[in-house]
């Protein structure tokens, strides 16, 4: 037992470095991906046909292709087209794409949950399209979407472990590296799992609490 604790303590700094990279790549991907999802949700409902078409393609590819394929496409595929990116940038592009595609559906559901009368009331008091969206529709739609968006964010942190496949030094890569030098895969992978759980379990509990709170005022 002592041996295990010593092993974990010895490698904890490297593992925490990895966790930091995981959190960073997830955070940046979400910071780009969620606004992208909002734009896609609006574009999918747009009156302009080309706009709708482009948005649908982006969303369906993002949802249809496994995240691992998107990651490998941006890291190994794009250099063939003359665009070489480091693993962090590739990871952000792929995960932001995936985030945008999935969150656009979450936000679209939120937009559709706002009663039609709200849009009519906003129009009737003379608000233009953008103001109606900004002051009346979106605040209500996002309130509906927030729990699902946070839940998705937790999933993305877990999905960031796929970046191991493109040599990003995140948590799983670190664990694998330590495993391959010490040949003690089992304990180090357990530690990686515990570190994910240390973030994800409290976050999940916080999200359900928030959900109950928002639900109480709906």
């Amino acid at each position: 037992m002592n041996d295990l604790v010593d092993f974990w303590l010895e490698h904890l700094p490297a593992m925490l470095d990895g966790l930091l990279v995981s959190v960073q790549v997830t955070g940046v991907s979400l910071a780009i991906g969620v606004p992208l999802g909002l734009m896609l949700a609006l574009a999918v409902q747009s009156r302009s046909k080309p706009m709708r078409g482009i948005a649908i393609v982006v969303v369906e590819v993002g949802r249809g292709a496994p995240a691992l394929i998107l990651l490998q496409f941006t890291y190994f595929g794009l250099p063939n087209a003359g665009l070489s990116l480091d693993s962090f940038a590739s990871a952000v592009i792929a995960l932001a794409w995936c985030t945008g595609a999935y969150t656009s559906e979450i936000i679209r559901a939120g937009l559709e949950a706002v009663p039609h009368g709200q849009k009519e009331a906003a129009e009737a008091i003379g608000l233009n399209h953008l103001d109606a969206l900004r002051y009346v529709i979106l605040p209500q739609a996002l309130r509906v979407s927030v729990p699902a968006l946070l839940g998705f964010s937790i999933l993305m942190l877990q999905a960031s472990s796929l970046c191991f496949a493109i040599a990003l030094p995140e948590l799983v890569s670190q664990a694998y590296l330590i495993g391959s030098t010490t040949f003690r895969y089992m304990p180090i992978l357990v530690l990686a799992g515990l570190l994910y759980a240390a973030i994800c379990i409290p976050a999940t509990i916080a999200v359900s609490a928030l959900e109950r709170k928002l639900g109480a005022h709906a």
Partner: peptide, 9 residues
Amino acid sequence: FQSFNLFPH
């Protein structure tokens, strides 16, 4: 409107 349509937020 019949259903008021106030902005609830």
